[in-house]
Amino acid sequence: MYCLIPILSPLTENKEGRNILWGIVIVIAMFKSILIPLSNIFGFTIPEIASNFIEINGYLIFVILGYLLSVMDVSRVKRIIIYIIGILSVIIRYGYTYCMSINANMLIDHLFDYTSLLSVFLAVSVFLLIKNISWDKLNEKSVAVLASCTMGVYLIHIQIKYTIFNTIFPFAQTNLIYRILGTFCLYILSIIIVLLIKKMPIINKVVP
């Protein structure tokens, strides 16, 4: 994804380029966010011609959507609709997973793919919510510090999760309390580590 940024960047310079970016989002959504979850749910085989498109990195949809939404002025009515869709996405995901898992007596996680349409809608709703919060009312310095740690947190949080959290809490994957509170603990610990790294000579270049 990072290697593609220089290629995609020129598309941000005009309306025609941004339309192409929307086209890329639609293609990824069709094949990664819709087709794959449906094939898992209904058990059909994906045609070979579609499989070639599916090889594309589905996470790219979040990179492109993040940019497009950051420069768009989404009206209040549209935001409310998106928030409702985001809430429904959570209800559908967990409702379906719970009911199907109970019936099958095993975990059915068809809707838990990060690139599924439900995940995309949820991500978009959260993004717009955060974007439209009036940060001026908060401590600007604190927000700026947290914002400066975003890249570092993204780089290290998975390693912390697997090397520290899952080692100390081997039951973590199935514990409800951990699944809810663990995310916040993981974020706070990642922030602390990134802030420490930022104070170390040479190493601090890793997390600018």
Rank of each mutant, 00 (worst) to 15 (best):
Y96W: 14
P170R: 02
Q173L: 02
H110Q: 08
L128W: 03
S119Q: 13
S89F: 10
Y96L: 09
L118R: 11
I188G: 12
R93I: 12
P170K: 03
I188W: 10
I180L: 14
Y187K: 06
L88Q: 09
M106P: 07
R93E: 15
T167L: 08
L181E: 01
I160L: 15
A123Q: 04
A123W: 14
G95D: 00
K141F: 04
Y178N: 13
K141D: 00
L117A: 03
S134A: 09
S116N: 13
S142A: 08
I160C: 00
L117W: 10
F169P: 05
A123I: 06
Q173E: 12
M106A: 15
Y96M: 07
S134D: 13
M151V: 08
N132G: 02
T97F: 09
V126M: 13
G86K: 01
P170Y: 02
I177G: 07
T183A: 00
C149L: 02
V90S: 11
S89L: 05
S101W: 03
I87V: 14
I192N: 02
F112D: 05
Y94N: 15
Y98N: 14
L129F: 15
L118E: 09
L117M: 14
I133D: 01
M151G: 04
H157E: 06
L107Q: 08
L118F: 12
G182V: 06
V120A: 03
M151H: 11
L146G: 12
V153Y: 02
V120H: 09
L117D: 03
R179N: 15
F184R: 08
K161I: 04
I108A: 03
L117V: 12
K137C: 09
A144W: 07
G95T: 00
Y94C: 08
V120K: 07
Y96G: 10
I130F: 10
C185D: 01
D113C: 04
L155F: 04
L181T: 05
I160N: 04
L129T: 15
L88K: 03
Y162A: 07
F169M: 09
I158W: 12
F171E: 12
P170Q: 06
I130S: 00
